[in-house]
Design a protein around this nucleic acid. Structure first.
Lengths: 97, 97
DNA sequence: CTCCAAATATTGGATGTACGATATTTGTCT
DNA sequence: AGACAAATATCGTACATCCAATATTTGGAG
């Protein structure tokens, strides 16, 4: 995640946290949801490294179920999402007047 | 700008286009506005390369006035902003239910 | 004219996001 | 067991963004 307050990078991580806050999902579900929102589906080479970084940062946790791995927010992930939402809101106010 | 529909990169360019659509500004004004929105002010090494790329893409135009350079959207920049806004909206729907 | 401050610009190094290709794990079907 | 598909994972490369530091241009003050 973007720890830096000036960083426009980290939007993918932010979106992943947001999607997982609505419902625990596995990687391909996340890819499909991103595809629906953005117009085309991200590569495995995009999605899995991002999930790995979030996991290593302690913001998401995983549980293996057969072939798939279901990701969910940790308490730290929930807190990080709340902070990121506030910053996002402040950054983009006025976009749709 | 991000031409790719899957790309979360290009958010800074998007914000710059948005700010310039409200009012033509020069570089330091843009930096100050970003600082107000994001919580800390971007470096010159962030802002000027981004403006240069937007200029070379034909999305903004510049006019020198003494010490400062005032940037404004070109017609192509307005069109690009409209498209980017629509995608942004679709991507982040449901963030604040 | 000279010095200074403000605005603009560039450089080097780091990180996040992106794709295509390839590899690995796992469950299912025969 | 062996073949296959789906999900997960990694690799190499490219690019947008980021900062700190430094350089350049410009207008104004002394």
């Amino acid at each position: 995640m973007a720890a830096d307050c000036c960083d426009m990078r980290g939007m993918l991580s932010f979106l992943l946290l947001f999607l997982l806050s609505k419902k625990p999902m596995h990687g391909q579900q996340l890819a499909a949801e991103l595809g629906k929102r953005k117009g085309c589906r991200p590569s495995p080479g995009t999605i899995y490294p991002a999930l790995k970084a979030l996991k290593e940062a302690g913001l998401i946790a995983e549980k293996r179920q057969g072939k798939t791995i279901t990701y969910r927010l940790t308490p730290a992930g929930s807190r990080a999402l709340r902070v990121a939402k506030a910053r996002f809101c402040r950054t983009f106010t006025g976009l749709f007047p």
